[in-house]
Amino acid sequence: MKATVLVRPKQGILDPQGEAVESALGHLGFAVRDARVGRVVDLEVEASDPAAARAEVERMCEQLLANPLVESYEISLDG
């Protein structure tokens, strides 16, 4: 089963990368605010059903893919 994990800096955590992107977009003439830059992890997970797959990926996020102190994560499953 395919899983996609979206990891982003938690609200309130300084995100200088997001600020740099926001400023660069401003230079291009786009009016944007609150740009935040995160990370995407695509993976294929062995699991009997979607609930088991989600639980497995959640453990991956807690243990490695995200740092819970400064990052939040979202999991989506496909297939």
Partner: peptide, 16 residues
């Protein structure tokens, strides 16, 4: 920090 032996986390410098 990542190992949980110290509190906190280190992120990109404010100045990038």
């Amino acid at each position: 920090c990542e190992a949980g032996l110290l509190p906190g986390a280190l992120r990109a410098n404010e100045s990038l």
